[in-house]
Amino acid sequence: MHNTPHTVSDVMTRTVLALKTGATFKDVVKAMREWKVSALPVVDDGHRVVGVVSEADLLLKEEFRDGDPDGYARPRRPEDLAKAGARTAEELMTAPAVTVRSGASLAQGARIMARHRVKRLPVVDGDGVLKGIVSRGDLLGVFLRDDADLAREVRRAVVERLVPETPGAIRVEVRDGIVKLTGRFRETGLAPVAAHLARAVEGVVDVDCALSGPRRHLGLDPELPDGTGAVTSPGTPPG
Rank of each mutant, 00 (worst) to 15 (best):
R136E: 13
L181W: 03
L190Y: 06
G177W: 04
P237E: 08
L162S: 10
P69Q: 08
A86E: 10
E160F: 00
R171F: 02
D70P: 00
G128M: 11
D138M: 11
A230F: 13
G128H: 10
L59R: 06
T232M: 10
P234D: 01
V118A: 01
V193L: 14
R186E: 15
H47D: 15
E62R: 09
D176C: 00
T7V: 12
D147R: 01
D66G: 01
V231S: 02
T7P: 00
G239H: 09
L58P: 04
L19D: 06
P222Y: 12
L197P: 02
G128P: 10
A23D: 15
D44A: 09
V207D: 06
A104V: 06
E223C: 10
R14D: 14
S102P: 01
G235Q: 03
G128F: 11
V154C: 04
V43K: 07
R115M: 07
R48G: 03
T13F: 06
R77W: 08
I133E: 13
V53G: 02
G213M: 07
D80T: 00
G177C: 05
R171H: 11
E91H: 10
G239M: 01
V16H: 09
P222G: 10
V8S: 07
A104L: 08
E160N: 13
A194N: 06
V154D: 09
V29N: 01
L218K: 12
V98I: 15
L17G: 08
V53F: 04
A148E: 15
P167C: 05
V50K: 08
G46Y: 09
S38T: 12
S105K: 02
G141K: 13
T236W: 02
D10W: 11
T15S: 15
V134R: 06
D226W: 10
R48V: 11
G46D: 15
V100P: 05
R87L: 12
V231T: 09
A86P: 09
G235V: 01
A82H: 06
R14E: 15
R111V: 12
K20E: 14
P75Q: 09
D27P: 02
T13Y: 04
G219E: 15
D221W: 12
K30L: 13
E79P: 00
T94E: 10
A89W: 10
T166D: 13
F64D: 02
A95K: 12
A84K: 03
